[in-house]
Design a protein around this nucleic acid. Sequence first.
DNA 1: ATACGCTCTCACGCCGCGTGAGGGTCAAGC
DNA 2: GCTTGACCCTCACGCGGCGTGAGAGCGTAT
Lengths: 260, 260
Amino acid sequence: MEIYTVSELAELAGISVRTLHHYDEIGLLRPARVGDNRYRYYGEEELLRLQQILIHRELGLSLGEISAVLDDPAFDRLESLIKQRDRLEAEAGRHRRMLKTIDRTIAKLKGEKAMKDTDLYSGVVSPQKQAEYESWLIERYGENIRGEIEANTVKTQSMSPTDHAGLMQELKEIEDALAQAMQDGAPPQARSLDPLIERHRSWVARTWSKPCTPDAYANLANLYEAHADFVERYEAIAKGFGAWLPAAMQSWAKRQEQTC
Amino acid sequence: MEIYTVSELAELAGISVRTLHHYDEIGLLRPARVGDNRYRYYGEEELLRLQQILIHRELGLSLGEISAVLDDPAFDRLESLIKQRDRLEAEAGRHRRMLKTIDRTIAKLKGEKAMKDTDLYSGVVSPQKQAEYESWLIERYGENIRGEIEANTVKTQSMSPTDHAGLMQELKEIEDALAQAMQDGAPPQARSLDPLIERHRSWVARTWSKPCTPDAYANLANLYEAHADFVERYEAIAKGFGAWLPAAMQSWAKRQEQTC
DNA sequence: ATACGCTCTCACGCCGCGTGAGGGTCAAGC
DNA sequence: GCTTGACCCTCACGCGGCGTGAGAGCGTAT
């Protein structure tokens, strides 16, 4: 059994002694033993836990989240990874929008184009703020549906035509596949739909700049169901699809929550 | 000429009023005018400056750095924007790579769950651990190492159980011999180890589909040293082997490079 | 007049530690 | 046994980038 002092473990892991003290303070990584002299001693197990901590830290989790994750006996690595994936995708989307914004700003500086003030900020806004804004929208879709649509168009306008077309093409493919499934007689609750619904959710996650949780996804389904514009749009794809799709989405979301 | 109050500008930019106050406090973004009532009023110019600030902030500059950059009289907006664009693209690339890595890890974890019943033989590390390990590796050591990992796992996965078992048997023999040498008191730098180390390198070369140069071999040693799974694995063979083996590998690699 | 929303200025709190200050502990050498 | 120097400890403040009140003034509509 190997035993490490603070500085040994710190050097091994490439972190500072202070960091180990801190992790002890907040109960994230306790020493295996503490001597009479109050020296901290760590063993193999703590080394492994520290590795886990550092991995999650690199992926951008806060220390609180990490300790929750690691101390959850039913810690699901898969779920955790999927969460990370959604975060990354949202980030990537933000980056794409920022790129477009910068390009347009460059164009403006060169005097080639005029730009509206609101356009200056598309993509530049902080992720938290935008996330807040969007979840707010979804919570209150009923009264603010126009705002939502407006925000959406502003957003998509800030994309290049080719990007936008590609995104729409992808959405169309997913929707067509879902409509086909419906026409083949699949009930909205069918588990066989899961891969398609997952693709759909993933697409949505990319256009939002916040993680699309099952909960949020279910809210989106409600929105689809409640608003005539959306119903119309989906009915145009296939008869009954305007009701079937939200049902499928809600069914999927429910199952996700149950398995949590 | 447009004039904005704090809350107007904040909403436009997707930031908080407090943030504008803060930027005023630290002199990063001063209002165009301040009324008798001490209200802050911003104009077009401030709007543009705020955009610059937010872009730079997104790119990870501190507010101090941003103000230094923006207040440099030789500051060229166009040039700066182009630089930011480049950095942004690099960031986006990193994100894409991380996404891929996570996807691969997810795929593997899902495969593992589905095939849990058909758990034929245990490899070097459990596939679950390995999946996690790979994403960590790529985070730490970059994209270039991915090819090697990929080739490695693909190869071992595509092998018949008997072949795989044979390979593992051979590896075990080499490692046991090395561990024996260590326990007999050989320091990692001993030249007498060369034949064994060469056998080891040769084994590695066979499992990689890429040439295993001394340099690559030294990198592998670093990995062995850095990751707890490997350390654990080698410590299980013999106490201290987890540190000794990488040292021996590195020593060998160093000598190879000198003789070149 | 009064109510409501916007604005202001303090001023403390949060995270993830860095960076001392001030003092004990341990092994080695004189 | 005594010093030296390298460790270790516990406070405790500081930083950056704001969030989040509290308490008070301003502006406009009814």
